[in-house]
Simulated assay, not measured.
Amino acid sequence: MAQRAGLVHWHPHELRHSGASLMLAQGTPLHVVSEILGYAGIAITKDTYGHLIVDDKRAAAEAMSGALFGG
């Protein structure tokens, strides 16, 4: 399949990692990506890809700030 897509130099693990990274970058929830990857829980997914969801943390902090201090 990788050969037909012109990705012969990519290892299947790299394709899996890139797919997960792209899904998270597009806003797919962490638990959904975890399910697609076949993990039993989100812990491994969070540990591996957690650095990619900084915007979610920022949005949560801004929402909390708005709730507490208005705005």
Rank of each mutant, 00 (worst) to 15 (best):
Y39R: 07
R16S: 10
L37Q: 03
H17E: 09
V32T: 08
W10V: 03
A2S: 13
I42P: 11
A59C: 03
W10Y: 14
I53D: 00
L37I: 01
A20N: 00
V8N: 15
L30G: 05
G71M: 00
L15A: 10
G50W: 13
L52F: 12
V8M: 14
H17W: 11
G70V: 09
R16V: 08
H31S: 02
L68G: 02
L30R: 10
F69Y: 05
M23S: 00
R58C: 10
L22R: 15
Y49D: 04
G70F: 13
M1Y: 10
V32H: 06
G19Y: 10
E14V: 06
A59S: 05
V33M: 06
V54R: 15
L22D: 09
M23G: 01
L68A: 00
L68W: 02
A60Q: 07
W10I: 06
H13I: 09
S34T: 01
A2G: 08
Q3R: 14
E62W: 02
L30W: 05
H11T: 03
V8E: 14
D56N: 15
E35K: 14
D47S: 13
L37Y: 05
Q26M: 09
F69L: 08
D55N: 14
A61D: 02
L15W: 05
V32A: 06
D55T: 12
A2E: 09
K46L: 14
A40L: 15
K57N: 07
L37E: 01
G19P: 03
S18T: 15
H31G: 05
P29D: 00
S18W: 15
A40E: 15
L22C: 13
A43W: 13
H13Q: 09
Y49Q: 04
I44Y: 15
V8A: 14
T28F: 10
G66E: 05
H13Y: 09
A5K: 06
A2F: 12
P12A: 00
G27V: 06
H51E: 11
R4V: 07
H51S: 08
A63F: 02
K57S: 07
H31V: 07
G6M: 04
A60T: 07
L37S: 04
L52T: 03
H17D: 12
A59Y: 02
G70P: 04
S21M: 02
A2D: 10
I53A: 04
L68P: 02
H51G: 10
D47A: 13
L24G: 02
G71A: 00
Y49N: 04
S65G: 08
T45C: 13
I53S: 05
L37V: 05
L68I: 01
M23V: 01
Q26T: 09
G38P: 08
S21G: 03
F69T: 02
L68Q: 00
E35H: 10
A43S: 14
G71K: 04
L24P: 01
A61K: 10
D56W: 15
A60P: 03
L24E: 09
W10L: 14
A20P: 00
A43M: 12
L24Y: 07
E35S: 11
A20C: 05
L24H: 05
L52P: 04
K46T: 08
A20D: 07
